[in-house]
Structure formats: C-alpha cells, structure tokens
C-alpha cells in the first residue's frame, strides 16, 4: 500500500490529531471551544435526526404533520428525541454565530487563515439552511407559508431564479414533491456538506499553524 493516497491520508490524520499542541492554546479560554461545541451539536443532531427519520413521513404537509404527532405522542421517548433535535438545532446556529464573532474579535480571519474563514462562512450558511429546512419539515400552516415565501425568494434571483426553484423545491411550492425535496436537502445533502466542510475546516486549522495565542 502507501503511495500518494496513503501519504495523503496519514498527512490528514497527523493534522487532525497532532502529536504536539501549544500550551497557550490547550486551555478553553482563547476560543471558548465554540467551534468544537458547534460540531458536538452537529453530532447530536445527526443521531437524533436519524432517529426521527424512522417515523417521519415526508411529502404532503398533512401527512408530515400527522407523523410528527405520532412521534410526539405514540413513539417511546419520541417527544424527547424531537425536543433534543429541535433545541440542538437552535443551539448549533447560536454557537456557530458566536464562533464567527470570536474569530472576528481575535483577528483569526487574517492570513494565513483567510481561506479557512471562507470555509467557515460556508459552514454558517449550511447551518442556517439546515435550521430553516428543518422548520419547513413540520408541515403546519407556518411551515407551508414559509416554504412559499422561500420559493418566491429563490425565484427573484436574476437569470438563475427558475432553475434554482427547480433544484431546491422540485417545482411548485404546494406540490408534495417540494416536501420530499426539502426533506432530501435537510436529511442528506446539507448534512453531507456540513460533514465534508467541517473536516476540511479542522484540517486547515492545523495546516495553517494551529490555534495560536496571541493571534
């Protein structure tokens, strides 16, 4: 084995899990561990989200709403899993935003870390989209109207508007396909993007010289 691929992998592991960490950054104070906290919430959302998928029925809002009633009232600990998923979702948005504020305040976005700043902003975008699509999955009146608004907003994008509507919602906002498409974004595509970009983000942290203090 070995070769370029094997070396790439070893390189990756070494950066994610380095043998040495600067003493000044081993504590919690310089960063408040907000990035790590965000990722912890993401893992919690992954587990609880997978559990919800066992009983959630995407598509028609009425059917989706009914399946949530079942999760809430019939499934053992369903109310608990749903609550943890919901609150971890809110918490993740909160910690990602605070993480960004910390990076701005400590000037950590400056070279050589400017590329990781871009990855971080994309992660914030994906996180907000995850939170928003989750809220669309509920299928109550609020969610149905929010989906219509989002659909109309996407259509306002110059030139690409209609194509964007098709990719994001699969067609008109009140068709069942829109519910299935939002489900796909929420449970597959966006979590995948967050996972890939997170690991890239962590790798860059080490590659750019680790967390340094003072910055």
């Amino acid at each position: 084995m070995g070769g370029a691929r094997g070396r790439g992998f070893r390189d990756f592991i070494k950066h994610i899990h380095p043998p040495k960490v600067a003493n000044s950054t081993a504590g919690v104070l310089p960063t408040l561990c907000l990035g790590g906290l965000s990722f912890f919430f993401f893992l919690l959302l992954l587990v609880t989200g997978l559990l919800l998928m066992l009983f959630y029925q995407p598509g028609s809002p009425a059917v989706a709403y009914d399946s949530l009633t079942v999760i809430q009232d019939v499934v053992a600990f369903g109310w608990f899993v749903r609550s943890v998923h919901k609150w971890a979702g809110q918490a993740m948005v909160f910690t990602v935003v605070l993480h960004l504020v910390r990076v701005v305040v400590t000037g950590a976005y400056r070279p050589p870390r400017e590329f990781n700043w871009v990855i971080g902003v994309l992660l914030l975008l994906f996180t907000v989209l995850l939170d928003f699509t989750g809220y669309l999955l509920i299928g109550d009146a609020t969610a149905r109207h929010a989906l219509k608004v989002a659909h109309a907003l996407a259509g306002e994008v110059p030139l690409a508007g209609f194509a964007l509507q098709l990719v994001l919602f699969g067609g008109p906002p009140d068709a069942d396909l829109a519910g299935v498409r939002v489900y796909l974004w929420h449970c597959m595509l966006l979590p995948l993007l967050v996972a890939v970009f997170s690991f890239w983000h962590f790798y860059r942290v080490r590659k750019d010289g680790g967390v340094k203090w003072p910055l």
Binding site: L51, L54, Q57, S67, V70, V74, F80
Partner: peptide, 16 residues
C-alpha cells in the same frame, strides 16, 4: 434501552 424502545415502537404508520 431508550433508543431500542424508540426504534421498536408500534405506530401503524399513521395517527390511529
């Protein structure tokens, strides 16, 4: 135990 109970809940797939 909690997760097992969750996964094996019988629901008929709709609100009964």
């Amino acid at each position: 135990k909690g997760i097992l109970d969750f996964m094996t809940s019988e629901t008929q797939g709709t609100v009964p």
